[in-house]
Nucleic acid binder design. Structure first.
Lengths: 183, 183
DNA sequence: ATCGCGTGAGACATTCGTGTCTCATTAGAG
DNA sequence: CTCTAATGAGACACGAATGTCTCACGCGAT
C-alpha cells in the first residue's frame, strides 16, 4: 500500500530524462500513483528535482568509490570511472543541463565535492606523467561531464549504440588527455 | 524608431544562454523594448526560438564555410572549425540542450545538414589516415558539440578562461581523434 | 470483523506566462 | 510642419501547472 519512494524517483528520472518538461501529473502517472500522493512525498517540483539530485549525487559518489580513483595508473582509473558512471549517465545529463538553468546562484556543495574528486584524479595523472599538463584538471573534468552527457543523449536518440557508450567516451577522453611522447 | 531585429535576437541569445527559462517579458526588457513590440516581431516564444535557431544555423553554416573543411589535412580543418564556431558557441549550447527537450519528434533538417558536413570531415580524416577509425564520425560529431557546449558553459561560469576556449577543446578533441602510431 | 492510515480521484483557488487589445506618444518620412 | 506608422505601457482574458483540500475506498494490522 505504501509508496516506494526510491521506485518513484527511478521512474521520475527515466521520464524526466526523456522529457525534461514533464508535468507533476505526468510524473505521477508514470510512477503509477496519484498526483496527490506524489505531492505528499515531494512538496513540489523543485523538491522532486532536489531529491533526484541527491539520488544522482549518491550514485555518482558510489561510482567514484567503486572506481577507486586513487589506485593504479590514472588512465585506468578514468576507464573504471566511466564504466561505473554509465548507469547514472542519463540522469546526470538531465541534472547538469537542469543546473545550467539555476543561474549561478549557489553551486551545490555536493557537486563541488564530486567535481573535486574527479579533478584530483586528473591532477594525479598529470603529476605522475600520465596526462598532459597543458589541459587543466578543471577543464578535463568539465569535458568528462560534457562527453558523458553527449554520450547519454546520443545513445538515447540512437545515434550511438549503447554497447559503445563506454568505449567511445573513454577512448576520446583518454586519447586526448593521455600524454604521448611524440606530439 | 524601428526595432533592429538582429539586435533583439542577439540580446535574446545572450540572455537565454544564461537563463534558458527566461520569460518573454525578460527577453523584451533585456532588449530594451516593450513586450508588445517583441510580440509584434516574434509571434510567440516558439517563434523566437525558431528565429534564434535559424540565426544559429546560419552562423554555423558560415563557420563551416569559413573553415573550408574540405581543404588540407583534416585535423587542421578541425582546428579551423572550432575557431570559426567559437562566437556561436553559447547560442549553440543553448539550442542543443533546448532541442534535447523536444522529445525526439522531428530532427530539424538544418541541423542534419550541419551534422552531415561535420561528420563528413571526420570521415575524410579517417579515410586519409589522420583520424582513428574505431570512433565513428557520428560520435565524433556528437562529441564536438558536447565539448563546445561544455566549453561555452565552463567559460561562462569562469571555470575556464575565455582565451583558452579554443585550445582546450581542440587539443582534447584532436588528441583523442588523432591517430598516433603507438597506441 | 473492525479500525486506522495511506491512498486515488477529483474539486478548487492561485499563480504565472502568454497572447491580444487599446491608447497615448513619438520618431521619421514626405 | 504634418501625417503616418511603429512603439511602450498597461489592461485583460485565457490556459497550464501548481499546491491545497476533501472524501470515499481498501489494505493491513489489531
Amino acid at each position: 500500500m505504501s509508496v516506494d519512494r526510491t521506485q518513484v524517483l527511478r521512474t521520475a528520472a527515466a521520464l524526466l530524462t526523456r522529457k525534461s518538461t514533464a508535468t507533476m501529473d505526468e510524473v505521477a502517472r508514470a510512477a503509477g500513483i496519484g498526483r496527490a500522493t506524489l505531492h505528499r512525498h515531494f512538496a513540489g517540483r523543485e523538491a522532486l528535482v532536489r531529491a533526484l539530485e541527491e539520488m544522482c549525487l549518491q550514485e555518482l559518489d558510489a561510482a567514484l568509490d567503486t572506481a577507486a580513483l586513487e589506485d593504479g595508473p590514472a588512465d585506468e582509473a578514468v576507464r573504471r570511472l566511466i564504466a561505473a558512471v554509465e548507469p547514472a549517465a542519463p540522469l546526470l545529463a538531465f541534472l547538469v543541463s537542469e543546473n545550467q538553468l539555476f543561474e549561478g546562484d549557489e553551486q551545490n556543495e555536493g557537486w563541488s565535492r564530486s567535481d573535486a574528486r574527479i579533478s584530483r584524479l586528473f591532477r594525479r595523472g598529470q603529476e605522475q606523467g600520465v596526462f598532459r599538463i597543458d589541459l587543466t584538471p578543471s577543464w578535463l573534468t568539465e569535458a568528462l561531464y560534457g562527453l558523458v552527457g553527449a554520450g547519454a543523449w546520443a545513445v538515447q536518440d540512437g545515434r550511438v549504440a549503447a554497447k559503445d557508450f563506454q568505449y567511445m567516451i573513454v577512448e576520446l577522453l583518454l586519447g586526448g588527455a593521455r600524454r604521448s611522447v611524440e606530439r
